[in-house]
Amino acid sequence: MGDRTLLQVTGLVKSFPLGGGFLKKPSGWVRAVDGVSFTVARGESFGLVGESGCGKTTLGRLILRLMEPTSGRVTFDGKDIFAMPRTELLQLRRRMQIIFQDPYSSLDPRMKVEAIVTEPLRATSNRTRSQRRRVAAEILEKVGLRAGDLDKYPHEFSGGQRQRIGVARALCVRPDLIVADEPVSALDVSIQAQVINLLGDLQEEMELAYVFISHDLSVVEHVCDRIAVMYLGSIMELAPTVEFIRQPRHPYTEALLKAVPFPDPHRRSEPVLLEGDVPSPVDPPTGCPFHPRCAYCFDRCRREKPSSEEIEPDHWTACWLNSGRGLEGEQT
């Protein structure tokens, strides 16, 4: 990919202390993100799927340096974002933005749309108020709202419209990368399609790269060029979308894909539903994090955590089944 690489995440780890507090030691640590690596190219949309609590939101916040990591690196356009001084970080904010899940919590109820949409512009550039207003009006039209909406308050809009305001806010600085954290999961299905199509159109028009976080595979496969599956803080499988759907190589991905409902009453697939629950990240299983629920689990899986390996060009899995060494182990 070379200089097409926009974002590179290497061995990223984020742990949160549990309990504890003033003069009290934390009783343990949760590794919300546990050694994640991937790259995103310019103009690419990269999907990140996983069950709730798998660390995908934390990962999104880390990419934008809204949190400091425990260890690991994130480089954006070749620069380490965690080593940046404040002034440089401010310039970085113009190039990476975020869209949130909840269109109600993500807009300040006491601000007018104009102030909301132009806020990142106001903080990172020295344009005048009238210039900012012009930009905001332009962006609002682009996301399907009217320039006249600038003087309204968020409560005057529906959920879908509010989400468009959130999109406009992210776009007004003309970023290269947008982290979309479950941007449609709080919306009605009909509105979901509208917002997804909007995001797709904007991507073409503005050459945006997305890190598209979702728990809904059908949404991600529609939008993304490549998909990564996360489980308990680690990436289990990463592949281009077509290959990911047709030839999943990780047992977890396989189970997830079979669980996606298919709108055809005649097609009866017997879903290999996952048994049990996601283990607590406080006390993760030894070895492969997925082994307690895996249908193909064998001895080695319980002992050692598999590392991510490239099994085909640009197709990575973290599973002993696909690892050359894994096949030598005894099967149970």
Binding site: R61, L66, Q97, I98, F100, Q101, S105, E119, P120, L121
Partner: peptide, 16 residues
């Protein structure tokens, strides 16, 4: 709240 996170992501300082 997320609108605070949004402000941070937009480069707005803590005082502001």
């Amino acid at each position: 709240r997320e609108f605070i996170t949004a402000a941070r992501a937009g480069g707005v300082g803590e005082w502001t």
